[in-house]
């Protein structure tokens, strides 16, 4: 596929990255080359093949429901770039000022 700048901008936004104009064009070229390479997959007949993730054995480890000690009170916030009154602090979200998306 031809990767347009609009798609790069969209992906950049989804990934919360910020590229300068030059960086974006370099990124577009790099990604274009990689997409041209991986296009070989498009030619394969994969219609009846299950995705690998579905072929993994199920089960695995489950936890028993026992409460264990959390990190010490301050440790959660130790590395926080900004904290106040025991909370992490960030600037306001201008867009989507809604509480999460559970």
């Amino acid at each position: 596929m031809e990767l347009g700048e609009d798609v790069v901008r969209h992906v950049e936004s989804l990934a919360r990255l910020e590229l300068t104009g030059d960086e974006r064009e370099a990124m577009r070229r790099d990604l274009q080359r990689i997409l041209d390479y991986v296009a070989e997959l498009a030619a394969l007949d994969l219609a009846d093949v299950p995705p690998f993730a579905e072929t993994r054995p199920g089960g695995g480890v489950l936890r028993e429901d026992a409460a264990r000690p959390s990190l010490p009170a301050s440790a959660a916030l130790d590395g926080a770039p900004a904290a106040a009154a025991g909370h992490f602090v960030v600037p306001p979200a201008i867009a989507a000022a809604e509480d999460g998306d559970a």
């Binding site: 919360r16 990255l17 926080a80 770039p81 600037p91 201008i94 867009a95």
Partner: peptide, 21 residues
């Protein structure tokens, strides 16, 4: 948000994310 590098001076959340990353 919780640890690691945070870009200085971001006025809103989106800018904080994008510039830090």
């Amino acid at each position: 948000v919780r640890y690691g590098l945070r870009a200085a001076g971001a006025a809103d959340l989106d800018a904080l994310y994008r510039r830090s990353r």
